[in-house]
Simulated assay, not measured.
Amino acid sequence: MSAGIQMLSSWATSNVEEVASTGPGIRFFQLYVYKDRNVVIQLVRRAERAGFKAIALTVDTPRLGRREADIKNRFILPSNLSLKNFDVLDLETMDRTNDSGLTSYVAGQIDRSLSWKVGSDR
Rank of each mutant, 00 (worst) to 15 (best):
S104E: 12
S10E: 04
K84H: 09
W11E: 08
Q109T: 11
S14N: 10
F52D: 05
K72M: 07
K84Y: 10
G65D: 10
T61E: 09
N98Q: 06
L83K: 11
T93G: 00
S120E: 15
D60R: 08
S79C: 00
Y32W: 08
D121M: 06
A56C: 06
G119Q: 13
V33D: 05
R63L: 13
S14R: 13
N98S: 07
D90F: 06
N98I: 01
D90P: 00
L81F: 14
Y105N: 02
V39D: 04
Q109S: 08
L81N: 03
D60P: 04
E17N: 09
T13E: 12
F75W: 11
L43C: 05
F86G: 07
L91I: 09
D99M: 06
A107W: 00
K53G: 03
S100D: 12
G51Q: 07
S21I: 00
K72C: 02
F52N: 04
A50P: 02
F28R: 03
A47F: 03
A12N: 13
L83T: 01
G51T: 09
T93I: 12
Y105A: 02
I55E: 06
D70V: 05
R122N: 13
A50K: 01
K35Y: 02
K72L: 08
Q109E: 14
R49M: 00
N73M: 13
R66T: 10
T93K: 15
N98K: 13
R66G: 01
S79I: 11
E48H: 14
R96K: 14
D121P: 01
G119I: 15
A107N: 10
D90C: 02
P62M: 03
R122G: 14
L91D: 05
G4I: 10
T93Y: 00
N80P: 00
T97K: 11
L57T: 05
P78Y: 07
T22Q: 14
R67T: 08
V106A: 07
A56Q: 08
K117Y: 14
L102P: 02
V19T: 04
L31F: 03
E68A: 11
Q6F: 07
L102Y: 07
L77D: 13
V19P: 03
Q42F: 05
Q42K: 15
R46G: 02
Y105V: 08
S115R: 07
T61H: 08
G119F: 13
V118G: 05
D111R: 11
K53D: 08
V40Q: 05
N38Y: 06
Q42D: 09
A107D: 09
A47C: 02
Q6T: 01
S115P: 10
S113I: 10
F28P: 02
D87F: 08
Q6Y: 07
T58N: 11
D60V: 03
R112I: 00
D95W: 15
M1P: 03
F86C: 10
R96A: 07
S100R: 10
G101N: 14
T22A: 12
I110G: 04
R67L: 10
L31D: 04
F52A: 01
I110W: 06
S120C: 14
V40H: 07
L8A: 01
R67S: 12
G65L: 11
S100Q: 10
L114K: 08
L31A: 04
R37E: 11
M1I: 13
G25P: 07
V118W: 09
S100A: 04
Y105F: 15
G4T: 07
